[in-house]
Design a binder for these strands. Structure first.
Lengths: 159, 159
DNA sequence: TGCGGGTTGTTATATAGCATTACAATTTCC
DNA sequence: GGAAATTGTAATGCTATATAACAACCCGCA
């Protein structure tokens, strides 16, 4: 059972403000504020997917394979921003669970084409629902307009 | 020499859009957009501090120790959101480089009080300058007003 | 047409950054 | 005064990731 924790205090990895402590002018640094918000995002993701052994990165991989059937592992690693060996690991993981499969690529005997299996597709649909619902909860403190603004500004940053 | 890379393609860890690839509706997910922006932030941090062997987390630790002289390691771990053993590692690292020191706490014989050394203080000042300048460059695609809005919205999220 | 250089998936290996657990010394609370 | 909690620490392990090397393969070019 991995889910049993003593739960004294917040679990490591989540960032909670400690009362009566000065944070200097960390809040002036965009990078720091970004990081805090992003960790909260991971937190929300994990809450939304408890019981399912999926991670943000693996979820992203599924979405991308779904959106680009026949994708090559190299291309996937590029999209994920990892080394090729990293894509291997993800794809192995997906294949082991019957969520994706490698098929021969006629045009290139070195590479595989990646595809979601029906099982993978339905799992992804379910995940999409959860993640979307969670996004709403996560951003509940923001109005719809604020949420849109936020996404827009973040998009400009990462562009 | 750690800095030598073949530099074919972007370095792993940074996220760059792959042309001609569909990202599904990943951009609808606040978590994903956040993550991308945050990775860009790390990237910017690393660029701003090349040659100096510091990380965002270690920088944060320095700021917090500076702002709370005599801080205890437990308190630091709380502020960093890591386990106590993690704070140990950071403090060891800082101490090894003469940037911080542990002093006896009169009021509690179990704990140490953490302090930046003069060397640590000057290093932090220098880092602050670099990070601040970098923040400006990083957020250059945003107007001052947009930057303020962004920080405000992120703050609401992570609150 | 064959050859050299780049690409692809793969394996092996290493590393960084964490968490978890256990422990002794100490403090705090009843 | 004794039980329970806290502190720093060490030992251990896990996860994600990078790097390097390799064989099979593709492609452009002499």
């Amino acid at each position: 059972m991995k889910t049993n924790r003593k739960a004294r205090g917040p679990r490591p990895g989540s960032i909670v403000r400690v009362a009566g402590l000065s944070y200097g002018d960390l809040d002036e640094h965009l990078g720091y504020v970004l990081r805090r918000a992003q960790l909260a995002g991971f937190d929300a993701f994990h809450r939304a997917t408890t019981g399912i052994d999926v991670s943000p990165a693996r979820y992203t991989a599924m979405v991308i394979v779904r959106a680009n059937p026949g994708l090559t592992q190299s291309a996937l690693s590029g999209a994920l921003g990892t080394a090729r060996s990293g894509a291997m690991t993800v794809v192995d993981w997906l294949e082991d669970r019957g969520l994706a499969e490698r098929r021969n690529l006629p045009r290139d005997a070195r590479a595989w084409g990646l595809y979601l299996t029906p099982r993978g597709e339905s799992m992804l649909r379910s995940l999409n629902r959860k993640v979307r619902a969670n996004d709403a909860r996560f951003a509940a403190r923001l109005t719809a307009a604020e949420r849109a603004t936020l996404k827009m500004l973040l998009g400009k940053l990462a562009g």
